[in-house]
Write a protein that binds this DNA or RNA. Structure first.
Lengths: 354, 354
DNA sequence: CTATTCTGCGTTTGCGCTACCATTGCGGTC
DNA sequence: GACCGCAATGGTAGCGCAAACGCAGAATAG
C-alpha cells in the first residue's frame, strides 16, 4: 500500500481541482466559497456543482493561514460544577456556529506543576482569535495575566472580582434574590427564613442582600432568628434547617441561598413531619440538577448559563469583527443577564393561620 | 491608527525573525521547535533564547498546512447528562494535551432543522484528524454515517449499540453490578432488593443481570418480592422503595440501579422511620453529583468517565499516529474499562437479627 | 591518508488558500 | 468614436511553516 508522505490524509481535491473541473480560476472558486458578490449566477452554479462532484472540502488551515486569523475561540476550562459546563457548552456552541467560529476547549487546571507557565505557552501556540473564561478560571490572576500578556481579546463569565479593562457577563443575583423573596411575600409568607452561604463566596453576600432588600421594602424587620448560617453544602443545610424549624414560631418559608441546602431543608422538613409545600415552603437558588431530581421539585432561581455563554461569544465575536474591520471602538465591557424565577412544587401559600 | 490588511492580528514574529535573531536558518528554528535531533546544544539554546526574546509563537495554521494534518480531535457534542460532559472533558483534555492534540467541541444536536446534513458539512470543513463520540451521539445513525462518509477515524464511548467496524470504549456494567451485590452479601445481607431501570434503556438489563449473577452464585434464589420496577427517576424510586419497605419481611438492603432512585430510597427509608444505614442499606449506581450532595452519602458504582474519555483519546491518537507512519494495522477495536465501587456512608451490615 | 559515514545546518520548494491588482468585455456618456 | 465605469474574472504573490534534499565539515574506518 503506497503511502505518500504528504497530504496522505484527505481525498485531496483542492481548490485548483475544483477550478479546473468547473473551467474557471481558483480565485473564482474562492469567491463562490466565501459567498462574495460579483460572480455570475451561472458560474456560481457551475462551481458549486464541481464542488459537489469532487466532494471538495476547503482546507481550514490554509484558509486561516491566508486570512491571518483562525476563527477559533478558546474556552479556558477548569472543571467547574458539573451542571455548569454542560449548559455553558450549549449556549456557546450555538452562538459559535451562528457567528462562524469554532470552539476549542483548553484545560487550564492546576493538574500539573508548572501549569501557570504552561498556560502562557498554550495561549501563545493555540492561535485563538479570543477566549471566553468561565468560573472558576475567570478569577485566576495568573491566567488573566497570561491572557493579557498574549494580548488576547477575552470575555469573562460571572467573575467574582471585577477588573477595569476586562469585559464580562454577570448575573443579577441580588435582584433575583429580591424577586424570589417578593414572590414568597406575595404568596402570603411573612416569617421567611434565610440560609446564608459561606462568607468566602461572593454570591453569599449578594444573595443575602437581595433578601434584605425585599424584606425591608415590605416593611418587615430582619429577625435574626430567621437567619441561619450555611456553607452551601447539604450537611450545613440540614443543620440550618433543623435550627430554624425548632424555633417558635417556626418560619412558614425557608429561602436557602443554594439548591443543595434547599434540598436538605426539604429533607429536614420531612423529618419534622411537615408537608412540603403544605406546611412549609422551601426555595433554593441555582437550579442545579438536584432541583428536579427530588420530589417535590424545587422552586428556585435559574442562572441562564446557556444565555450567558451565548452572550459572551457574541460579545467576543463582535469585538473580533470590529477589530478585523479596523474599528478600534472599545465596545461594551459588561452585560448583565437577568436570572429566571423557576416556580415548581416546593412553594405554596402558608398554611391557614400560619 | 494604521491598520494593515493582513496579519494585523499578532505580534508578528515569524520563524524567520527568530532565525535572523539567532543567526541561523529558519529550518534550524523549526528543528528546535519540533525537538528534532541533530541540532547542536549551543545552537538550540541560542534559538530558544531568540524565541523567548521575540516572544515568538509558531503559527498553528501554517504548521498544520505544511504538515497536512491538524492535530485536532473533534468532540461531537449533544448535551448528555450534566455531570457527564464535565468529567468527559477532564479526561479528554488531559490526554489530548499529553498527546499533543487539541480538542474541538462541535455541536451535533437536533437544535436545527437540517442538522443531519449540516453535520456532514461540519465534518468536512472542520479538518479534524479524528473524532470521539460520547453518548447520546454515539448511537445516532445519521452522525455515524456522516463520520463514515467523511472517512474520519473515530472512537465511540459507551455506545448502546455495537457496530462491527466501530472502535469503542465500554464499561463493565454487569460485572460492576455483580461486584456491588457481592459487596452487600459480604456485609451479611441476604434479603437484597433491586430496583430496576426502564426496559428501553440498555443499561437496565445489564445491571439487573449482574445482580442476578451474584445472587445465584451465592446460592440465593431470586425473590420476585425483592425486585421492583423503576424508571431511573426519583419519583419512581420513591414508589419502588415504598413498595419494597412495606413488604414483610422487608429487605435489609436496597440496590437501586441508578443514583436518583437510590436517593429516593433513602428518603423513603427515613419516612419509614428507618435509620440509614443502621436499619437499611441503600446503594446506587452512577455516582452522580447527587450521590455526595445528600446525607448519608451514597455507596455507589462510579463509571470512570474521565478515564474512559482519556482512553478514547489515546486509542484515537494511537490510530492516527500509526496512520501517519504508514502502519495500516487495524489496532484494537474495543476497550473495556472497569467501574469502581465507591463505598460511602449508606451501607453497613444488616441489623442484628435482621 | 584517503574513503566513507554521520552530524549539523542551509536552500529550495510548495502545502491550499486568499488579498491585491490587472485584465477583459460590455454598456453608456459626451 | 474615444472615453469612462463597472461587473466578472484571472494572474500573481505571498501567508508561516516543514519536508526533501544538498552540502559542507567532523568523525570514523580501512
Amino acid at each position: 500500500m503506497s503511502v505518500k508522505t504528504r497530504a496522505n490524509k484527505q481525498s485531496g481535491a483542492t481548490i485548483k481541482d475544483v477550478a479546473q473541473h468547473a473551467g474557471v480560476s481558483a480565485m473564482t472558486v474562492s469567491r463562490v466559497l466565501n459567498a462574495e458578490p460579483n460572480v455570475r449566477e451561472a458560474t456560481r452554479e457551475r462551481v458549486q456543482e464541481a464542488i459537489r462532484e469532487l466532494n471538495y472540502r476547503p482546507n481550514l488551515s490554509a484558509r486561516n493561514l491566508a486570512r491571518a486569523n483562525t476563527y477559533f475561540i478558546g474556552l479556558l476550562y477548569d472543571n467547574p460544577s458539573a451542571g455548569y459546563i454542560s449548559e455553558l457548552l450549549i449556549g456557546a456552541l450555538n452562538r459559535c456556529r451562528k457567528a462562524g467560529y469554532h470552539l476549542m476547549v483548553e484545560s487550564c487546571g492546576a493538574a500539573e506543576q508548572d501549569w501557570e507557565s504552561a498556560i502562557g505557552d498554550m495561549l501563545r501556540t493555540s492561535n485563538f482569535d479570543g477566549v471566553i473564561i468561565p468560573p472558576p478560571v475567570c478569577d485566576n490572576e495568573a491566567v488573566l495575566a497570561a491572557v493579557d500578556a498574549a494580548n488576547l481579546p477575552h470575555v469573562r463569565i460571572s467573575p467574582d472580582t471585577s477588573r477595569e479593562t476586562s469585559p464580562c457577563i454577570v448575573t443579577d443575583d441580588r435582584t433575583a434574590s429580591q424577586r424570589m423573596t417578593e414572590y414568597l411575600l406575595e404568596l402570603g409568607h411573612r416569617r421567611i427564613a434565610f440560609i446564608r452561604g459561606p462568607e468566602t463566596h461572593g454570591a453569599s453576600r449578594t444573595r443575602f442582600d437581595g433578601y434584605c432588600d425585599a424584606m425591608k421594602a415590605a416593611g418587615l424587620e430582619l429577625d435574626p432568628a430567621l437567619i441561619a448560617p450555611g456553607e452551601f453544602t447539604y450537611r450545613s443545610g440540614l443543620e440550618a434547617a433543623d435550627a430554624l424549624l425548632s424555633a417558635e414560631p417556626r418560619p412558614t418559608a425557608i429561602f436557602a441561598s443554594n439548591d443543595d441546602m434547599a434540598v436538605a431543608a426539604i429533607a429536614m422538613g420531612h423529618r419534622h413531619q411537615l408537608d412540603i409545600p403544605g406546611d412549609l415552603t422551601v426555595v433554593g437558588f441555582d437550579d442545579t440538577q438536584t432541583a428536579t431530581a427530588i420530589w417535590p421539585q424545587l422552586t428556585t432561581v435559574r442562572q441562564p448559563i446557556a444565555t450567558m455563554a451565548a452572550e459572551a461569544i457574541e460579545m467576543l465575536a463582535d469585538r473580533l469583527d470590529r477589530q478585523r474591520s479596523g474599528d478600534d471602538a472599545a465596545g461594551e465591557a459588561r452585560r448583565e443577564i437577568r436570572s429566571e424565577l423557576i416556580v415548581r412544587d416546593s412553594s405554596a401559600p402558608p398554611p391557614a393561620g400560619g
